[in-house]
Design a protein around this nucleic acid. Structure first.
Lengths: 227, 227
DNA sequence: TCCAGTTTCTGATATAGTGTCAGATTCTGG
DNA sequence: CCAGAATCTGACACTATATCAGAAACTGGA
């Protein structure tokens, strides 16, 4: 029963995370490169058409490989999207860090502006992936729900904490549930970032949107009117 | 050249809208019934699985008919969804009417509460269809974009008008673009209505959500803290 | 009641994409 | 240069969409 190979099973907490292919084998450098190319091709296609119009054949062809190769690395199209969403979510902490700046007066409004700006830029850069990711969560897909929870919860909690402080200081209405309010603010950011294009038809520029969202964020968090 | 039939071509503005099938023929009473049954079956399925998992065969089977019949009335699954969304959007004016109530003090807050409540109930009743409809718009689908524009624009304008009044009275920050702010508030309603279920995991009840959203709505529209 | 015309429904099928797998191909260290 | 590991792919079984010619059901008038 003594293992004759050098591959010893380590406890999963210690074992470094290696990327695996669909049959559970560790992927080497060449495979990793193919996998990355597939993801890039996927992202490129996603930027120009909706997921439903994306054929695995196209993704594969764009990297001069075959559909079977795609399936070697991803269970299905959604899994590839999930990986892209994970990639995107790695940038979240940068936005989170902005929350720590001052919320006093004019400085505070600038903090709000910076956050909104960062958020919208982030969505602009990854809108297709993020929107899809958000849809899959809404549909109840476990994988995407977990990702959303992991990336949004810290943000919600950071905002909620500010609101609680405001409430303790008596500036912010106690009627609001801090996390619910945080979710509402996040909803503005997500939703407007997702469709600010269609508002341009009504004479609303991106600039307007940023200023307005920042005003609302500032007003809800601090309880004070935007300067 | 004189038409011998009794079917005279009227100007399209006058001609009553008859439902047509895929080959452009007017649908009679029996067909209309089948079509409605198909829509109902579609709605029922949509309530339990995501669109991607809905097979035309299932919809058809649920009304004891064949896929070919489905395609006689709808171009594709999306068209059926669009019809359902249109059905749902007919209820919008009721919400819009609430906007006209008083926005003064405690009464004003009750107005906000009523609007939020109506909106969330509306979404609860049609969430699958509305969410999908919103996704298709985001994806740029013309048919859904038009529907969204037609149903949301009046709402946005009503809110925008209130905000403008507040700005003129000096209660509301002039930094906000009225339509952008209206869109932001609509975003809260849409987004939270769409996923309030997943917030329950964080201890946020539907009740909290309604109160909080109403507070934000009230605060942004009137420039005053919620009572 | 029967018939001709109209409306509605469906079996059969062309088309197209997904996902699998055995085996071919390519790479690597010795 | 070779053995074995890693990677890739042609061929294929399956599943679903969408179409259409013709069958079936219904209708009103003789």
């Amino acid at each position: 029963m003594a293992p004759s190979t050098s591959r010893v099973k380590l406890p999963s907490a210690v074992r470094p995370k290696k990327t695996l292919d669909q049959s559970g084998r560790v992927v080497g450098p060449r495979g990793l490169q193919t996998r990355d190319q597939l993801l890039d091709a996927m992202a490129a296609l996603l930027a120009q058409r909706s997921v439903r119009e994306i054929r695995v054949v196209d993704v594969a062809r764009n990297v001069s490989t075959s559909p079977a190769t795609f399936y070697q690395y991803f269970e299905d199209v959604d899994e590839a999207v999930l990986r892209l969403a994970e990639r995107a979510s790695e940038r979240m902490p940068e936005i989170l860090a902005l929350m720590g700046r001052s919320w006093q007066g004019r400085k505070g409004f600038e903090t709000a502006l910076a956050i909104v700006e960062a958020f919208i830029s982030h969505w602009d850069a990854h809108h297709a992936v993020l929107r899809l990711s958000s849809l899959r969560s809404d549909e109840g897909d476990r994988r995407f729900l977990k990702l959303r929870r992991d990336t949004m919860t810290p943000l919600l909690q950071a905002i909620a904490k500010l609101i609680e402080e405001g409430q303790r200081a008596g500036r912010v209405s106690k009627r609001m549930h801090p996390i619910a309010a945080a979710a509402a603010l996040a909803a503005i950011l997500e939703r407007l970032a997702a469709y600010h294009r269609s508002l341009e038809g009504l004479g609303v520029t991106r600039e307007h949107l940023v200023e307005t969202s920042a005003s609302i964020l500032y007003q809800i968090v601090t309880g004070r009117r935007a300067p």
